[in-house]
Computed example of a mutant assay.
Amino acid sequence: MFEKMPFIIAELSGNHDQDFELAKAMIHAAADAGVDAIKLQTYTPDTMTLDIRHGEFMVSESDSLWRGSNLYDLYAKASTPWEWHKPLFELAESLGLVAFSSPFDLSAVAFLESLDVPLYKIASFEMTDIPLIQAVARTGKPIIMSTGMATLDEIEEAVATIRAIGDNPLTLLKCTSTYPAKIEDSNLLTMADLAAKTGCSVGLSDHTQGLGAAVAATALGATVIEKHFVLDRSAGGVDAAFSMEPKEMTALVEACRAAKAALGTVTYGGSDAEQAAKKYRRSIYVATDLPAGTILTEKHLKIIRPSFGLAPKHWPDVLGKTLSMDVQKGQPLAWDMMA
């Protein structure tokens, strides 16, 4: 499904702060950082919620970055104008990036199809929106789906919904839906279980601060890493607190690529690069000049480096043997020296 593993996505979200030039600058910076893809979010405040300013339409969680915000205003601030999508996608593609988005309703799917996006992302909060998942599945395109706080039953229902429609390549992302997420809430061991139970490839949508979770996920087999991106955290942005700046994203890309390379294959006996180093193992050497006929004892021999003599395991076999020739200090002991 992806040319590189892990496939690393820079999520722009609303960190462009409704500034088109900033959005373009973010894409340039993401490309320079070495990511594989940029992702937008496709919605309007009206496709997300109602313009009501009390009760459950307010963000009330005490630990939320957006506490006290009205949902409608928050989504208006964080949304990416639909007229930006085409030029931003074209810019990203010109820089060698895959460009796609998360649709949040059926109109967004239709709009993204008009732009012929190459794949789709289902956000974790939309995992239970079966009509949306069906619409995305009907495109026949690859799907990346965050699992967030979904139960296993909900995940299996979403996967079954996609499978009932087609054979879209499907990757499930472990995701902790808190913003920012605590590293200890990542529970990355879930990825292997998720892969085993669904038969899907897996990855990580990472809301933690830093790169530790992403590198660990790569080492555990993640095929996709998604991370929110911002040019400058101090300048703000709706997701800035858990987004990576360009230098940090570069470090994440390099660290994840290194972690993937380090996995290698199951290998015993040393790599090709290690073979030359085997000469520095120990072996049995003659420790002093000796004439033919000498009966070998511990004072005549040493187990030392390098490894051109008999292996140390033969030590008890050679003691008491008689030399059949004169030998000199520093010669590796060999069977043909002994009668």
Rank of each mutant, 00 (worst) to 15 (best):
I9S: 02
A10F: 01
L22Q: 06
L22R: 14
A29F: 02
A29M: 05
A31R: 13
D32Q: 15
K39N: 13
L40P: 11
T42E: 02
P45R: 04
T47Y: 09
T49S: 12
E61V: 04
A76P: 00
K77D: 08
A78C: 11
W82I: 06
W82F: 12
E83G: 01
W84P: 01
F89S: 02
E90S: 12
E90L: 07
A92Y: 01
A92P: 01
L97K: 08
S102A: 14
P103E: 03
D105W: 15
L106F: 13
L106M: 13
V109D: 05
S114D: 15
L115S: 12
D116P: 05
K121C: 06
S124I: 13
M127Y: 10
M127E: 09
I130H: 04
A135Y: 00
V136N: 07
I144G: 03
T151H: 03
V159P: 03
A160N: 14
T161D: 04
R163K: 14
N168A: 02
P169Y: 10
L170V: 07
T176Q: 10
S177H: 11
I183R: 13
M191F: 03
A195G: 14
A195L: 08
K197E: 12
G199L: 11
S201L: 10
S201A: 13
S201W: 01
V202I: 15
D206Q: 08
H207T: 10
T208K: 12
Q209S: 08
V224E: 05
V230L: 00
A240F: 00
A241M: 08
F242Y: 15
F242H: 10
E248K: 05
M249L: 11
A251E: 11
A255F: 05
L263H: 09
V266C: 03
D272H: 07
D272N: 07
D272A: 12
Q275D: 04
A277V: 01
Y280H: 14
S283W: 09
I284K: 07
Y285P: 13
A292W: 06
G293D: 06
I295A: 10
K299I: 08
H300Y: 11
L310Y: 03
P312G: 03
K313W: 08
W315P: 02
P316M: 01
V318K: 08
D326M: 07
K329E: 04
D336P: 02
D336V: 02
M338P: 01
A339P: 01
